[in-house]
């Protein structure tokens, strides 16, 4: 568990970082909190020759709530997400999710940007971001672009981000309705056996005016359950519609056998976890 050789760079501006990435090409890799990248380097599954550390770029660390929209700088740590009073009011599901990631030490280092950019299906933030319908701001030397979280993930460790781009900011609407992030894991510090992010808003007439569901670690990307989300909005929340929504979600997941258990078990657990998340979210809506 000794990483290969690498050079370390600590640029103090986004432009400097992008220039370094551009100059160093394939051999360079951005490092944020390092808690996904460094374990891979220790296993020599990743052997970057240059690490470009983003931590000295102060623009990348902020939580801003304005005009019904929340924007979070990529270098904001999970601990900062948990500690933010503003976020607790404007999007409490973020704290609920972050608290289920790893352990406190890791959350002091690990960043939201690293978590969503990493592309590991085990990461919890990507499904949350799909559930929140977040947008990722990507910067390259020749400009900025925005990609929706729901369109960002292509396969395990493959995302819409170009290698020479840096993810700078995550933007999503304020969400104050019912919410829940339910995660089954084997122990503290474990990735999900199955996890579900659910947002449900109760309309004035008591019906479900907005629903959004996404799942973690049940396929090689996070899964946004569009059909189930729409169905819940149309049919309202009752036992039958919840069962139908769960069934529809389970049809589109594709978990793999691993040490957490065989796929059949994970499917079953996913159904239970999702149902609990829906019940919980609706009870808070």
């Amino acid at each position: 568990m000794i990483p290969g050789r690498f050079d370390y760079h600590q640029p103090d501006s986004l432009t400097a970082a992008l220039t370094l990435l551009n100059d160093l090409g394939d051999d360079a890799r951005v490092i944020a909190g390092g808690h996904s990248l460094i374990p891979m380097m220790k296993l020599r599954l990743a052997m970057p020759e240059h690490l470009v550390d983003l931590k000295a770029i102060s623009d990348l660390k902020h939580i801003t709530v304005k005009d019904g929209s929340i924007s979070i700088g990529a270098m904001t740590t999970q601990a900062e997400l948990i500690g933010s009073a503003e976020l607790a009011l404007s999007a409490p599901i973020v704290k609920e999710t972050a608290l289920q990631i790893a352990d406190p030490q890791i959350r002091y280092q690990g960043t939201i940007g690293g978590n969503v950019a990493n592309g590991d299906p085990g990461n919890d933030m990507p499904a949350l971001m799909q559930c929140l319908d977040a947008e990722f701001q990507l910067s390259g030397l020749d400009g900025q672009r925005t990609v929706k979280a729901r369109e960002f993930y292509e396969a395990a460790y493959f995302t819409a981000r170009d290698d020479l781009e840096i993810l700078t900011e995550i933007v999503f609407p304020v969400c104050t309705g019912g919410y829940a992030y339910e995660k089954q894991k084997r122990k503290i510090g474990d990735y999900a056996t199955a996890a579900a992010a659910v947002l449900l808003t109760r309309g004035a007439d008591g019906s479900c005016s907005h629903a959004s569901i996404a799942l973690t670690n049940l396929a090689d990307t996070p899964i946004y359950c569009e059909d189930a989300s729409k169905a819940l909005m149309n049919s309202g929340i009752d036992d039958a519609s919840i069962a139908a929504a769960v069934k529809s979600c389970l049809e589109i997941i594709d978990p793999v056998d691993d040490n957490r258990g065989p796929a059949a078990f994970k499917k079953h657990a996913a159904g239970i976890v999702l149902k609990r998340a829906i019940d919980n979210a609706w009870s808070r809506a």
Partner: peptide, 16 residues
């Protein structure tokens, strides 16, 4: 007795 093995016991006993 990890989660999936316990689940399997329950499953084999028809408890699901």
């Amino acid at each position: 007795h990890d989660h999936w093995r316990i689940w399997k016991t329950a499953n084999d006993l028809g408890l699901h």
